[in-house]
Simulated scan of single mutants.
Amino acid sequence: MSATSIPFSPLLHSGILLKRYKRFLADVRLDDGREMTVHCPNTGSMKGCAEPGSSVWVRLEQKTGRKLPGSWELVETPLGGLACIHSARANKVVAAALAQDLITPLVGYRVVRPEVRLPGGESRFDFLLSDPGECVVEVKSVTMAVGAGGGAFPDAVSLRGQKHLRELTSLAANGRRACLLFCVMHSGIEWVRPADEIDPEYGRLLRQAVAQGVEVIAWSVVPSPHGLEVAGQLPVEI
């Protein structure tokens, strides 16, 4: 794979989704006939990404003390394209992309610190870029396709996302560089917008943030059964 890709290790196994339930559990039937319950590493609604009968890919890994045999990673979605539903992957791939200066609006910083709580702040932000200057970056994983190549965030009402927008807006209003980065983990999404039909308050706060100087960018990460490839910037329709 290219230097812009993060391979899956161990390799993924393909199968069919039987059902997702209790948020963190999914029953799958692998192509070799085995049926098993795996971890679903996504706390969201997974709208459009959890249809029974969908083709899925799971990572099987035996570890001491682990109750389930593996984790669900990818799904083929009804509107076409593969989505990575493992939400923690977004921060890992963004960290790798920042280290390689692949996210062009955010290049030029010598120091990249993850999970930073600013003095006086309530939330931890995903990244603080510094030297020279500073930039606060909050990452949101986008997997919900809405048709015509579009993707939207969030896929459920997100009070946490609203809180992050308010804090980013406050930072920008006080002269600090603040960036919201939509990490698009769906190969069929070509542009991004706020999901006003699901969380109108998030959409309102996003537009307010932009008006106050928060930078909003979207970056495509193309999933495949082999790994995640950092592809490039996507349009954001505010």
Score class of each variant (00 low, 15 high):
Val157Tyr: 14
Val75Lys: 03
Arg176Asp: 03
Ala195Trp: 01
Ala172Gly: 12
Glu215Val: 09
Ala96Phe: 08
Leu60Tyr: 06
Lys163Thr: 11
Arg193Thr: 13
Trp72Tyr: 12
Thr77Ile: 08
Met1His: 06
Leu159Gln: 14
Lys22Asp: 14
Val157Phe: 11
Pro78Tyr: 00
Phe24Gln: 08
His39Cys: 01
Val146Cys: 15
Glu215Cys: 05
Leu118Val: 00
Gly213Arg: 06
Ala231Asp: 12
Arg177Ile: 02
Pro154Asp: 03
Asp196Ala: 07
Ile6Gly: 06
Pro10Val: 04
Ala156Lys: 15
Glu122Thr: 07
Ser45Lys: 12
Val139Asp: 13
Gln208Arg: 13
Met144Trp: 15
Ala172Glu: 14
Val58Arg: 06
Glu197Val: 04
Ile198Ala: 01
Val157Gln: 10
Pro41Ala: 00
Tyr109Trp: 02
Pro154Gln: 04
Gly48Tyr: 13
Gly33Thr: 01
Ser130Thr: 09
Arg23Asp: 13
Lys163Gln: 12
Thr143Gln: 03
Val112Asp: 01
Val136Asp: 10
Asp199Ser: 02
Ala96Gln: 08
Gly44Tyr: 15
Thr169Gly: 07
Leu106Asn: 06
Leu74Gln: 06
Asp196Lys: 11
Ser220Leu: 12
Ser14Val: 00
Ile85Asp: 05
Ala195Thr: 10
Val230Leu: 01
Met144Thr: 13
Val142Phe: 11
Gly80Val: 04
Leu11Ile: 12
Gly70Tyr: 03
Ala148Arg: 15
Ala209Leu: 00
His13Asn: 11
Gly232Gln: 01
Leu18Thr: 15
Ala195Arg: 01
Gly15Pro: 01
Glu167Tyr: 04
Pro10Met: 04
Trp72Asp: 05
Gly15Gln: 01
Leu74Lys: 00
Gly147Trp: 10
Lys140Ala: 10
Trp219Asp: 10
Gly203Ile: 01
Gly133Ser: 10
Gly149Lys: 04
Pro7Cys: 06
Leu206Trp: 14
Glu73Thr: 10
Arg89Met: 04
Leu129Asp: 11
Pro7Ile: 04
Leu79Ile: 09
Val210Cys: 07
Gly15His: 05
Lys19Thr: 08
Cys135Ala: 12
Ser130Asn: 13
Val94Trp: 04
Leu206Asn: 02
Lys163Trp: 09
Ala99Asp: 14
Leu128Ser: 05
Leu171Tyr: 00
Glu76Ile: 06
Ser224Leu: 03
Val107Thr: 15
Glu237Tyr: 09
Ser187Gly: 03
Ala172Asn: 09
Ser187Asn: 07
Pro52Cys: 11
Ile16Ala: 07
Pro194Ile: 08
Pro7Asn: 08
Arg89Asn: 07
Pro41Thr: 03
Gly203Leu: 00
Gly120Met: 04
Val38Thr: 07
Leu234Cys: 12
Asp32Lys: 08
Gln212Thr: 05
Val38Lys: 01
Ala211Gln: 10
Val136Thr: 13
Val56Ile: 13
Glu229Thr: 15
Val137Phe: 04
Lys140Asn: 15
Ser5Thr: 14
Gly150Glu: 14
Arg34Glu: 13
Leu60Trp: 05
Trp191Arg: 10
Glu35Phe: 03
Ser158His: 12
Ala83Asn: 07
Val214Ala: 00
Leu98Trp: 03
Glu138Gly: 05
Glu215Gly: 02
Arg89Asp: 02
Pro78Ala: 00
Ala211Tyr: 06
Ala97Gln: 14
Pro235Arg: 08
Leu181Tyr: 13
Ser158Pro: 03
Leu205Ile: 02
